[in-house]
């Protein structure tokens, strides 16, 4: 899977705009974020809170379709796009 990293999280990826992950077909979006956090410590907590909920102004798109739940299957998606949602003027 290719993960598209928004500018606001690239301090974790040493500036990389995309990250490639090898996933099992059963992986969920939560698993993807867990893998990213293993690779880039601290990454997940900035976008998912301690109760496992997506933070209010962060959106996730799997192959262009918004995922509203971290349990969403993701292992067979080609791309995850993480977006800092427009939330102001």
């Amino acid at each position: 899977m290719q993960v598209r990293i928004p500018g606001l999280l690239r301090s974790y990826t040493n500036g990389a705009e995309t990250v490639t992950l090898e996933l099992s077909g059963e992986a969920s979006l939560a698993d993807v974020l867990g893998d990213l956090d293993d690779r880039f410590p601290g990454f997940k907590f900035r976008i998912v809170d301690e109760q496992g909920a997506m933070r209010p102004h962060i959106r996730f798109f799997l192959d262009g379709v918004q995922a509203r739940d971290l349990a969403t299957p993701a292992g067979r998606s080609a791309e995850l796009m993480i977006v800092g949602a427009l939330s102001g003027g």
Partner: peptide, 17 residues
């Protein structure tokens, strides 16, 4: 350097910092 585990409530508590 960022804290490895910043302040966060217990999972299951229902509270978020």
């Amino acid at each position: 350097k960022e804290a490895a585990a910043p302040p966060a409530f217990e999972p299951g508590s229902g509270r978020t910092v």
